Simulated assay, not measured.
Amino acid sequence: MSSPYLCPNCKTNRTRFNIIEQLAKPVKLNPQTGDIVEELQQSNLDPFHVSYKGPNYRVQCGTCGLIEDEISFVKRAQINQSY
């Protein structure tokens, strides 16, 4: 988060953003009710449970509300650098 951002959607916002932290919690659900049956640990996932490999956080534009990975905002700022 030490790079300038520019919203790839509204293309005007460079200052107002929300950083959304993502915390993955592996669980097993009851297929009929949807209730959590068991909360799992990353170290003891069964062979059919894939661990979360997504980003730890995402960025939301504080102007238009777009939510994307940080790289989208950084790349748009790099393309539109003002000299």
Score class of each variant (00 low, 15 high):
residue 32 Q to P: 00
residue 29 L to C: 11
residue 13 N to L: 08
residue 16 R to V: 07
residue 10 C to H: 00
residue 79 I to E: 15
residue 32 Q to E: 11
residue 20 I to W: 00
residue 37 V to S: 11
residue 49 H to T: 15
residue 7 C to A: 06
residue 37 V to Q: 05
residue 34 G to P: 01
residue 56 N to L: 14
residue 68 E to S: 11
residue 20 I to S: 03
residue 11 K to Q: 13
residue 19 I to D: 01
residue 37 V to I: 12
residue 33 T to N: 03
residue 49 H to W: 09
residue 11 K to R: 14
residue 23 L to Q: 13
residue 33 T to A: 01
residue 42 Q to F: 10
residue 23 L to T: 09
residue 62 G to L: 12
residue 64 C to W: 06
residue 56 N to V: 11
residue 26 P to L: 05
residue 11 K to S: 09
residue 21 E to W: 00
residue 78 Q to P: 00
residue 32 Q to G: 00
residue 56 N to P: 06
residue 57 Y to D: 10
residue 66 L to E: 12
residue 77 A to K: 06
residue 59 V to T: 13
residue 8 P to L: 07
residue 21 E to K: 08
residue 30 N to Y: 01
residue 20 I to D: 07
residue 69 D to R: 14
residue 66 L to A: 13
residue 36 I to A: 07
residue 18 N to L: 09
residue 7 C to N: 04
residue 67 I to A: 08
residue 23 L to E: 12
residue 61 C to H: 02
residue 40 L to K: 12
residue 41 Q to C: 06
residue 14 R to N: 04
residue 66 L to Y: 01
residue 14 R to I: 09
residue 61 C to D: 09
residue 71 I to E: 10
residue 9 N to W: 05
residue 31 P to H: 09
residue 60 Q to E: 15
residue 54 G to W: 09
residue 30 N to E: 06
residue 75 K to V: 15
residue 49 H to Y: 07
residue 46 D to W: 09
residue 8 P to T: 04
residue 57 Y to L: 08
residue 9 N to Y: 10
residue 16 R to Q: 10
residue 38 E to R: 13
residue 38 E to F: 00
residue 9 N to F: 11
residue 60 Q to W: 03
residue 19 I to R: 15
residue 78 Q to I: 08
residue 83 Y to R: 06
residue 21 E to Q: 03
residue 1 M to S: 08
residue 68 E to D: 10
residue 52 Y to P: 04
residue 50 V to Y: 12
residue 42 Q to G: 03
residue 72 S to H: 15
residue 58 R to S: 13
residue 47 P to T: 03
residue 75 K to Q: 12
residue 19 I to S: 08
residue 18 N to Y: 08
residue 17 F to N: 01
residue 46 D to I: 01
residue 69 D to F: 09
residue 67 I to F: 01
residue 3 S to Q: 14
residue 34 G to Q: 02
residue 78 Q to M: 13
residue 6 L to E: 03
residue 46 D to E: 14
residue 53 K to Q: 14
residue 10 C to L: 07
residue 27 V to I: 05
residue 81 Q to E: 13
residue 4 P to H: 07
residue 79 I to Q: 15
residue 71 I to V: 13
residue 73 F to S: 02
residue 70 E to A: 15
residue 27 V to G: 00
residue 18 N to K: 07
residue 8 P to S: 05
residue 73 F to H: 08
residue 61 C to F: 03
residue 76 R to Q: 15
residue 11 K to A: 06
residue 21 E to L: 05
residue 70 E to M: 12
residue 70 E to Q: 12
residue 47 P to E: 15
residue 73 F to N: 00
residue 51 S to R: 10
residue 79 I to P: 02
residue 71 I to C: 03
residue 74 V to F: 12
residue 28 K to A: 12
